[in-house]
Amino acid sequence: MSGLSANPGGPLLGRWEKPFEMLLGSATALILACIMLLTCVDVAGRYVFSEPVPGALEVTELMMGALIFASLPMVTLRNQQVTIDLFSPFIPAAVKPALHVLIHVASGLCMGVISWRLWVKAGQMFEQGDTTAVLQLKVWPLVYFMSALAAVTAAILILMIRQKDAAGGSGEV
C-alpha cells in the first residue's frame, strides 16, 4: 500500500508547500474541531437548557462539505489515495513512465470533472435561490468553495506527473 510513504524528491510545490499545508491544515483542523464542538453543544443544550442549537444539522452539513473538500489537496499531496501496489512488480519497467503519466492524467481528470460539475451546481443553486431550511443560509458560496478545492486537487495530481514514480517498481508487497 502506498499512502504510508512520503513524497520522494522534495516538496512538490517547492517553497510554497509549507505555507499551503499550513493554511489548509489549519482550516481543516478548525472545521473538524467546530463540528465536534457543535455536536457536543447541541446535545448539552438539549439536556441542560432544553434547547438544541437552532440549525445544528444544516450547519454540520455545510461544515462537512468544507471539511471534505479542504482535506482533498492534502490527501493527494501526502500520497494518501488508496492504491493497490500488488501487481507493480509484474508491470514491465519500460511502460512504467508512461503509466505514471496516464494514471495522474486520469486521476486529475476525475477531480477536474468533479470540480467542473460542482461549479455548475453552484451556479444553479445561485439562480434557484437554494437555502438551508432553518437558518435560510445561502448554499452556493460553499459549493463554489468546494469546486475550487477540487480544482486545486486536480492541479496537484497533474503536477505530480513531474515527480518520480512513487512506487518505483519496488512496491510494498
Partner: peptide, 9 residues
C-alpha cells in the same frame, strides 16, 4: 418541494 428551501417559494 420543501426539501429544497428557497427554490419553489
Amino acid at each position: 418541494h420543501g426539501y429544497t428551501p428557497g427554490r419553489f417559494p
